[in-house]
């Protein structure tokens, strides 16, 4: 029982971070129908940037987030302009899978040259501090990470629901053709949307770097989790991604704490297959178009 509750606590706290990563990915899918296989690599690049800022200038990873998100926003826009925009519309969704896979490899190669392949971690001095509540351990840094993710998701929500740009994004997700007819510049929305997805990856990356040691190959661990989450939530649904992130991360934490950590990776896949059996469009997805 103790292990179970501890698993739930850990899972929910970690789920917040995954929610942040996955929200960017599902947003990119919603806008462009592009499954971004480079999202994991972008998260790790964000983690490396936070690491570098901490090591070189002593900037706390939490405070570095505005800087890293700006850099990654630019990276995301560049990737969209250089590699995704030139694809022809009719085969964009199929080719974009492969193109973003190649981008992931490109980023991995770049990271392993810049920082070599040994594992890095950000040692702030507070990463091991924890509170004990009713006998359950709550690591402070995980709690902060959770709260930060909530704040970032809140910002994203405001951006999507309270601004002109957000309205253009939502219109594009719901019906790209009508949106274009009504004067939404879909190319600009696509570029900025990809940048926004990369920016959420950067914010999540800072936190990821605090929680786990990472190297350039770590994005492979992330990508299958992120993909299961976005499919479970319904491709294109940001709210769905958040709920799915918490579900997936909690159940895998429970499996890790009660059965064995080796099998927790399996949880993602099993959940994914079950969801596809019962509800192929995901929890909050619609059959035709994504919903935000």
């Amino acid at each position: 029982m103790h292990a179970l509750v501890q698993g739930v606590i850990l899972g929910v706290l970690t789920g917040g971070v995954y929610a942040l990563m996955a929200s960017g990915q599902t947003l990119i899918f919603g806008i462009m129908k592009v499954v971004n296989l480079a999202q994991g690599a972008m998260v790790i690049l964000g983690a490396y940037l936070a690491y570098q800022l901490f090591v070189s200038f002593g900037i706390d990873p939490f405070l570095a987030i505005p800087i890293t998100t700006l850099i990654m926003f630019a990276v995301g826009v560049a990737v969209q302009l250089l590699f995704l925009r030139p694809l022809r519309r009719e085969d964009r969704s199929e080719l974009s899978l492969l193109v973003t896979f190649a981008v992931a490899l490109l980023l991995e190669g770049f990271m392993s040259i810049t920082w070599n392949t040994s594992y890095r971690s950000i040692n702030t001095g507070y990463e091991n501090a924890s509170w004990t509540v009713f006998g359950y351990q709550i690591t402070q840094v995980r709690l902060w990470a959770f709260l930060l993710s909530l704040a970032a998701l809140g910002l994203l929500f405001l951006l999507l629901n309270r601004t002109r740009f957000g309205r253009a994004v939502r219109a594009t997700v719901q019906n790209p053709d009508s949106a274009r007819l009504l004067g939404v510049e879909s190319d600009r929305v696509a570029a900025l949307g990809f940048g926004l997805g990369a920016a959420t990856a950067a914010a999540a990356g800072s936190v990821y770097g605090l929680l786990y040691p990472f190297n350039s190959g770590s994005h492979y661990d992330l990508i299958s989790r992120l993909l299961s989450i976005v499919v479970l939530g319904g491709l294109g649904s940001v709210g769905g991604a958040v709920v799915a992130a918490v579900i997936v991360s909690t159940s895998s934490a429970i499996v890790a704490s009660t059965v064995s950590p080796s099998w927790s990776e399996m949880t993602f896949f099993v959940i994914l297959m079950l969801v596809l059996l019962v509800r192929p469009q995901g929890l909050f997805g619609t059959v035709g178009r994504g919903a935000l």
């Binding site: 129908k33 969704s93 299958s224 993909l227 080796s262 399996m266 896949f269 297959m273 596809l276 059996l277």
Partner: peptide, 28 residues
Amino acid sequence: VSMRTRADVFAIVTITFLFMVQTLAFNL
């Protein structure tokens, strides 16, 4: 199971399967 959905979901399921098999190869 995975071909019940569109091509991009199929790609997602298969790549997830790939990483799961890799994890199993490491863990078992």
